[in-house]
């Protein structure tokens, strides 16, 4: 393998890794904030991509407006989903809530499949058909944009949790719901807000992925990768998720190179098993982080 191939692999691996990190982060956020393991997260990724497709093709907006409007729309959808569908399940057995999110995912997936039957669709981004050439190495600028944008958004989110009062309240609820309630935090609002943010994160992953892979309802399968990334990172922190995602992205692509394309998922899983056997709570996880 030449140096240029190596660079291309790293760039591709990091970009898929940051998508995994975004999806994983959405899962962790919802789980820590509200105790819900949201199995509809993958479908929310697809939903975000389809909404962006709608704004871009049907309404005809430029990429940047599509970007912001989609995040806002999906955040509202996430909030409504929490209020209307998940709130009634507060206090229900854990498994029931998990299966309920599966049902929500199934509904979203089938609604998307039926309402938009194109085999593959995509919307234009300013980076279409561009190619970066650095020292004779071809790099698709989409990959750089995916990685850069996810890192930036995650950075902003970290700042939000540290500095902003609402962000701190979300942190507090995630750490100890009843104590937060006693401190005068309106927990139910924070729940809604948490789901809104995690849905917007899923949509962000969808928007970023689309120019590279196209829109399809099957995009939702990315939830498995996001889940693995989050577990790898310990299922409790933003930073852990990011590192977990990037490691997974790189593992997959190099696993594919050394063991053949069919084995790239398996390579990642086998390594994950080893990591978990050594560190049963992920790389950055701690035993007390276990919530369920």
């Amino acid at each position: 393998m030449g140096f240029s191939d190596f660079v291309q692999l790293v760039v591709a691996g990091l970009s898929s890794g940051s998508i995994y990190a975004l999806v994983g982060l959405g899962l962790v956020l919802a789980n820590k904030g509200t105790g819900i393991l949201n199995f509809a997260q993958g479908e929310l990724v697809a939903l975000g991509a389809y909404i962006a497709l709608f704004y871009s093709i049907v309404v005809g907006l430029p990429y940047w407006q599509v970007f912001i409007l989609t995040l806002l729309t999906t955040a509202i959808i996430g909030g409504i989903m929490e209020r209307a569908l998940l709130r009634p399940l507060l206090g229900a057995p854990h498994f029931t809530v998990v299966v309920a999110t599966l049902a929500i995912g199934l509904i979203i997936k089938n609604a998307l499949r039926i309402s938009w039957q194109e085999a593959v669709s995509t919307f234009s981004s300013p980076l279409d058909h561009l190619m970066l050439q650095i020292g004779g190495i071809n790099i698709n600028p989409q990959y750089a944009w995916i990685t850069g944008c996810s890192l930036a958004i995650m950075g902003m989110l970290a700042l939000f949790f540290r500095k902003n009062l609402v962000g701190k309240a979300m942190q507090a609820v995630a750490q100890n719901t009843s104590a937060a309630q006693l401190m005068g935090i309106r927990v139910s609002r924070i729940f809604t807000l948490t789901l809104a943010v995690s849905t917007a994160l899923a949509a962000l992953a969808g928007i970023l992925m689309t120019p590279v892979v196209g829109v399809s309802a099957e995009m939702s399968n990315v939830i498995l990768k996001g889940f693995v990334a989050a577990i790898l990172g310990g299922f409790n922190s933003l930073f852990g998720c990011l590192i977990g995602g990037l490691i997974l992205g790189l593992l997959e692509i190099f696993g594919g190179v050394y063991f053949g394309g069919l084995f790239k998922d398996i390579t990642a899983f086998v390594l994950l098993m080893f990591i978990l056997l050594v560190r049963p709570h992920g790389i950055f996880g701690t035993a007390e982080a276990r919530r369920v």
């Binding site: 692999l9 898929s16 590279v212 594919g256 069919l262």
Partner: peptide, 19 residues
Amino acid sequence: RAEFKVGDKDFTPQLLQVK
């Protein structure tokens, strides 16, 4: 002769072999 899976989004490993 290499294979890929349904739903794969990245084919760099296989294509490097082709190259």
